[in-house]
Simulated scan of single mutants.
Amino acid sequence: MEYNFQNKEEFIKLVQSEVLTSSEVLDILGITRQSLNSLVKRGKITPIKELSRDKLFLREDVIRRKEESKELHSKYRPYDE
């Protein structure tokens, strides 16, 4: 995927809409911080940047993980539905 920006504002808009903090990921996936750390450690989701107290993720990776987890949930826990 290649991005081309005409100006700084376009880049800022993209980052604001497509880059998520750990807290935002927790809300989207409906998981705990420990679960997120486990997903990262097992390579199921990869942060694009790790800061001292937070991690940044791409929205498309988080949405993909959410879809995968729905599929796994319905496959291995069909009685929950």
Rank of each mutant, 00 (worst) to 15 (best):
N7V: 03
K8T: 07
E9G: 06
F11H: 07
F11D: 10
F11M: 09
I12N: 06
I12C: 03
L14W: 09
L14G: 04
V15S: 12
Q16W: 10
V19A: 04
V19K: 06
L20Y: 02
L20Q: 14
T21E: 15
S22E: 15
E24N: 05
V25L: 12
V25I: 15
V25P: 00
V25H: 05
L26K: 12
L26M: 13
D27H: 12
I28C: 07
I28T: 11
L29M: 07
L29P: 04
G30E: 02
G30Q: 03
I31C: 10
I31P: 02
I31W: 05
I31D: 02
T32N: 09
R33Q: 14
Q34P: 03
Q34T: 15
Q34G: 13
N37H: 04
N37S: 07
S38T: 06
V40G: 00
K41I: 00
R42T: 00
G43A: 06
K44F: 01
P47A: 09
I48T: 05
I48P: 03
K49R: 15
K49Y: 12
E50M: 01
L51T: 01
L51K: 05
R53D: 02
R53Y: 08
D54Y: 15
D54A: 13
K55H: 07
L58H: 04
R59Q: 12
E60H: 14
E60M: 13
D61E: 02
D61P: 00
V62E: 04
R64Y: 14
R64P: 10
R65H: 14
K66L: 14
K66N: 14
E67C: 05
E68M: 13
S69K: 11
K70M: 06
E71F: 04
E71H: 08
E71N: 11
L72M: 09
L72P: 10
